[in-house]
């Protein structure tokens, strides 16, 4: 039999074909289910929250009344103090973590080499992997007595404690993203500046940071989002008392912590229960806005 007489079968669906199909189907289901889940969660939160928004909610009171007394008779649902709590803690956290993270990113990205650099990157990633309840525990059992002793105040749980803890928690993600932004700056820019006689610092200040500014802004925004959405660590380190703060030692209560602490006790379907979901919608919208802004900022890099 010669080669010419041989029959060929081009349409054969072998084992590889089936494996290929199965894997791509699995991947599709995985991806689709993530989207379905997110939409489902959003729909659920919105449904519960809408019951409050369209029902007993008084918009002006909700945003301007500092009193959150869902179990009083009659109840008041004001989240001004909770927003102030979240804002003050997140604000302080950013004051601490932005310089810290940018400094770390500049050191890791522009100065450190070889082993030092690798070690630092691993350390930063380890820091990011610490569970938030552990951070809360640190706030409660280490920072609290420390603040009481150093500043001679009666209670160490409050804005200062929470701000520091949140700052440390937000730092790793900000450092990682900021370092990526610095790494994305072409080396030819650095070389050009150095060839004109710029020192390492001049290169960083006048060339690298301006060139990376969109990425750095995104890093800060994502850090803000991280701080804003954090729950457990804030719950444990902020003192969790409703307050319009006037000093960094004041105890405050955050929006997220309120949901976490009260949802279990609020009877399903009650106004209280639904009001908590309304706070959830607010958190969702703000986080979404922050992430979207970060995304637009990064994309903006392509233009101009």
């Amino acid at each position: 039999m010669t080669n010419i007489d041989r029959t060929v079968d081009l349409d054969r669906r072998g084992r590889d074909w089936y494996i290929d199909k199965a894997v791509s189907w699995l991947v599709f289901v995985g991806g689709a289910s993530a989207i379905v889940l997110i939409l489902g969660i959003f729909a659920f939160v919105t449904k519960e929250g809408l019951g409050f928004i369209l029902g007993p909610m008084n918009f002006v009171e909700f945003f301007t009344n500092p009193a959150w007394r869902p179990t009083s008779r009659p109840p008041t649902y004001g989240i001004l103090a909770l927003m102030a709590g979240t804002a003050s803690v997140t604000g302080l956290a950013m004051l601490i973590s932005v310089p810290f993270s940018l400094g770390a990113a500049i050191y890791i990205g522009e100065f450190a080499t070889g082993k030092v650099r690798e070690t630092l990157k691993v350390l930063v990633e380890l820091l990011a992997a610490i569970p938030s309840v552990v951070w809360g525990f640190i706030g409660l059992s280490i920072m609290n007595p420390l603040i009481i002793r150093v500043f001679n105040v009666p209670l160490g749980l409050g804005i200062l404690n929470s701000g520091i803890i949140l700052g440390l928690m937000a730092a790793p993600i900000m450092t990682t993203i900021a370092e990526d932004a610095l790494k994305a700056v072409p080396d030819s820019y650095r070389e050009a500046a150095e060839a004109m006689g710029a020192s390492r610092w001049q290169v960083i200040l006048k060339v690298v940071l301006p060139a990376a500014k969109h990425g750095l802004m995104a890093a800060v925004l994502l850090g803000v989002g991280r701080g804003f959405g954090e729950t457990m660590a804030v719950l444990m380190s902020s003192g969790h008392s409703i307050n319009l703060p006037t000093s960094p030692f004041d105890s405050v209560r955050a929006l997220t912590a309120t949901i976490a602490a009260e949802l279990g006790e609020a009877p399903g379907g009650s106004d209280h229960f639904r009001a908590l979901f309304t706070i959830g919608i607010l958190l969702f919208l703000v986080t979404f806005a922050i992430n979207l802004t970060a995304d637009i900022v990064v994309r903006g890099k392509g233009k101009r």
């Binding site: 030819s188 820019y189 070389e191 050009a192 500046a193 060839a195 004109m196 006689g197 060339v207 060139a211």
Partner: peptide, 19 residues
């Protein structure tokens, strides 16, 4: 090196103006 590079300028193969 900064003083040296003020005295000795360099033009590269690929134009590399700063951004």
């Amino acid at each position: 090196p900064a003083r040296l590079r003020k005295e000795v300028g360099m033009v590269f193969q690929r134009p590399n103006p700063l951004p």
